[in-house]
């Protein structure tokens, strides 16, 4: 049962990592246009180089 002392912190840590990733993606406004994102994958417009980033229009979340 001693292994629990390692496993529990590890599982919690991984969960926390996921939570942090979620918080980051939320603040980076990745949920603003889910429909568009799923459609954009089909276009080859920015296949070679990424699009210039949208300037943040929300002063609270400078990304």
């Amino acid at each position: 049962m001693e292994v629990l002392a390692i496993l529990i912190p590890v599982s919690l840590g991984l969960g926390l990592l996921g939570l942090l990733a979620f918080v980051w993606s939320l603040r980076a406004r990745q949920y603003d246009d889910p429909d568009g994102d799923s459609a954009r994958i089909l276009s080859d417009d920015y296949d070679d180089a990424p699009a210039p980033r949208d300037p943040p229009s929300d002063p609270d979340y400078p990304d």
Partner: peptide, 15 residues
């Protein structure tokens, strides 16, 4: 300078 469509909101932001 720049135009981006938001399909979820059905709008375009244009600079």
């Amino acid at each position: 300078a720049d135009a981006r469509v938001n399909l979820t909101m059905k709008r375009a932001r244009i600079h």
